[in-house]
Design a protein around this nucleic acid. Structure first.
Length: 466
RNA sequence: GGCGCCAUAGCCAAGUGGCUAAGGCAGGGGCCUGCAAAGCCCUGAUCCCCGGUUCGAAUCCGGGUGGCGCCUCCA
C-alpha cells in the first residue's frame, strides 16, 4: 500500500509500526450542527482507506472522535437554552445516522472530549512541568511555541510575516502563535470542568492528542499511531499543534503518516458555514439515496477538490445504476465463485493512494464484460456466481453495490404504488400478447408519466424509478 | 503579504519521461426490440500559454495566465 503523506509531501510506502496492524485516528466533527457534505466526504475518504487496509489483511483500529466541548457548542447552548449533553447527543446521533446512510463503517472507538479530560490533564501537566507551557494570571494555560524547536516542521505552514502573526495576537501570550491548552472558566455562561489547574475547559487541540494517547497510542515507539487523518484545513494549526503537544509531552511523534482530504466546493469555492453555502447531508439524502451520494463523493480522488454539482451527481448515479442492473441479472444466487483476478485488479488500484478513478474504471470494465458474457452464455451458473461474488467484493472494498438490486431501483415507492405498477405491467403484457401494441404503448406511456421506466427482458418485464 | 495546491475532450476524471492519452456522463451511428428501455459494438482531445532540458514530455525545469486552499472556527 502506498499513501500520500502530507507531512513528507510525497507518496510513501505504508509500513505499520506493528506488523499487520494499522492504528488510525481521524478528526471527527464538532457536534454543534448537522453534518454537511464536507463531513461526508472526509468520512468516506478515510472509510475507503480503512476498507482497503482491511482488504489487504491489516488489523485496523480506527478511531474517530467527537469534539463535544467547544465555543460553538457553548454558543448554541446559550442560544437555545439546552444543555451541553442535549445538544451534543442530538448531533452525534444525527451524524451517525447520516454516515450510516452513506455506508461509512462505524469507528472501532468513538471517544468524546468530555470523557477524556484526565488524559488532557496529564499532557498539560507534563507540558507545564517541562516548561513548554505557561499559565496566565487569568488562569489560561498556553503552549509556548518558541520552546519547541520542531514547531512548524509538520505542516510547514506557519505564517512568517509580521502582519499575519499580529492578526492572531492575544493579550498576555508570549508568542503570537501560542495556543490555548486550558481556558479558565469565564463565568456563568461558560462550560467549566474541575481540573488540577482550576475550573475551566480544554483547548481544542489538546483534545485529539489526549484521545489518541488514551485509546490507541503505542508506548516506547517513535510514533504513537500509524496514520492521522482529517480535512486539509486541519493541517495547520490543528494538527501542527497536536503534534507539538504530544512530542513535547511524551517525546513521541504523534503519527507516522499524515493524510488530508480535499474540500467539497460549491461553484468553485470552499463549502463552509461562514460562506453560507453549506449543504447538509440530511437534505441531500432527501433527494438521493445515500449510496448514490457516497458514490459521487468518492468518485473524485480524496485529495483533489470536489466541486459539487447536481449534474455530476446524476452522472454518478447512472454509473452506479449499471452495476445494479448487472446485479439484477444474477439475482437470487446463493453460491459464490471467487474471482481472484478481478479482486486483485481492484485492490491494486486502491493500493495506490486510493486511486478511485482507476478502481472505478476496473468496475466499469467488469460490468461491461459481465453483461457481454451473460448475453453470450445466459445459463452459465459459474459465470453468474463469479459476477455476484465480484459485486460483493466491490461492496466490501468500496462500499457500494451491496443493496438489494430491486430495492435500489424502487426506493421510495410505496407498496400500493408497486401493486399498481405491477398491475399495469400485467395489463400491458396481456395487450402485447394480443398484439395490441397501441394499448401496450399507451400503458407504457402512463407508467413513464408516473416516473417508471420499464424494460422487457427474457426474465419478464422489469421496472425502475427514474 | 507569507506558504501551498491545481489547469487533460461539451462535462466529470485517470495518467508523474517512451506502445495508438484509462474510465464515466452527454452527443452521433449500429446491433437487439413489434416499438421502446436496458445491454453490447463503433465514434471524440496532443494535454492553459511561452521558453528550456532530452533521442523523446501531458508528464522534468523556468516564466506567464487563470482557479482554489491554508495563515481565524472549520472536514
Amino acid at each position: 500500500m502506498v499513501i500520500f503523506d502530507s507531512h513528507k509531501k510525497e507518496k510513501v510506502k505504508f509500513e505499520p509500526i506493528k506488523d499487520n496492524e494499522a492504528r488510525i485516528y481521524v478528526c471527527g466533527p464538532t457536534v454543534y450542527d448537522d453534518a454537511h457534505l464536507g463531513h461526508a466526504r472526509s468520512s468516506i475518504s478515510f472509510d475507503l482507506l480503512r476498507r482497503t487496509l482491511e482488504a489487504l489483511g491489516y488489523k485496523v483500529i480506527f478511531v474517530k472522535n467527537f469534539t463535544d466541548i467547544d465555543d460553538k457548542i457553548i454558543n448554541k447552548m446559550n442560544a437555545t437554552g439546552k444543555s451541553l449533553e442535549e445538544i451534543t447527543t442530538h448531533y452525534i446521533n444525527s451524524y451517525l445516522k447520516d454516515m450510516e446512510a452513506l455506508n461509512v463503517k462505524r469507528a472501532d472507538i468513538e471517544p468524546k472530549a468530555t470523557q477524556s479530560l484526565e488524559a488532557m490533564f496529564d499532557i498539560i501537566q507534563r507540558l507545564l512541568d517541562k516548561g513548554y507551557a505557561y499559565k496566565l494570571t487569568n488562569g489560561d494555560i498556553y503552549f509556548d511555541v518558541s520552546k519547541d524547536e520542531e514547531y512548524c516542521s509538520l505542516s510547514h505552514k506557519c505564517p512568517q510575516d509580521e502582519e499575519a502573526q499580529h492578526r492572531v495576537d492575544t493579550e498576555g501570550k508570549k508568542n503570537p502563535q501560542d495556543f490555548a491548552l486550558w481556558k479558565a472558566c469565564k463565568g456563568e455562561n461558560d462550560v467549566c470542568f474541575d481540573s488540577p489547574f482550576g475550573s475551566g475547559r480544554p483547548g481544542w487541540h489538546i483534545e485529539c492528542s489526549a484521545m489518541i494517547k488514551k485509546h490507541i497510542a503505542y508506548e516506547n515507539t517513535p510514533y504513537q499511531i500509524d496514520i492521522h487523518g482529517g480535512g486539509a484545513d486541519l493541517f495547520f494549526p490543528h494538527h501542527e499543534n497536536e503534534e507539538a503537544q504530544t512530542f513535547c509531552g511524551y517525546n513521541q511523534h504523534l503519527a507516522k503518516h499524515w493524510m488530508h482530504n480535499g474540500f467539497v466546493q460549491i461553484n468553485g469555492e470552499k463549502m463552509s458555514k461562514s460562506l453560507g453555502n453549506s449543504f447538509f447531508v440530511k437534505d441531500a439524502l432527501k433527494h438521493y439515496p445515500g449510496e448514490v451520494l457516497r458514490f459521487y463523493l468518492m468518485s473524485t480522488h480524496y485529495r483533489a477538490p470536489l466541486n459539487f454539482s447536481e449534474e455530476d451527481l446524476i452522472a454518478s448515479k447512472k454509473r452506479l445504476d449499471k452495476l445494479y442492473r448487472l446485479k439484477k441479472r444474477v439475482y437470487g444466487l446463493s453460491k459464490k465463485q471467487k474471482d481472484k483476478e478481478f479482486e486483485n485488479k481492484l485492490l491494486e488500484a486502491m493500493k495506490d493512494d486510493l486511486n478511485i478513478s482507476k478502481a472505478l474504471a476496473v468496475v466499469d470494465e467488469f460490468v461491461k464484460n459481465a453483461n457481454e458474457e451473460l448475453d453470450n452464455n445466459p445459463k452459465d451458473k459459474v459465470l453468474k456466481q463469479k459476477i455476484l461474488s465480484n459485486i460483493e467484493f466491490i461492496d466490501k472494498l468500496l462500499g457500494v453495490g451491496g443493496s438489494d438490486a430491486y430495492e435500489y431501483f424502487q426506493a421510495g415507492i410505496d407498496e400500493e404504488s408497486k401493486k399498481k405498477i405491477n398491475e399495469l405491467i400485467e395489463k400491458r403484457n396481456q395487450a402485447k400478447k394480443e398484439k395490441n401494441y397501441a394499448l401496450a404503448d399507451e400503458i407504457r406511456e402512463e407508467l413513464n408519466k408516473m416516473g417508471i421506466q420499464i424494460q422487457d427482458t427474457p426474465n419478464g418485464t422489469l421496472w425502475e424509478k427514474v
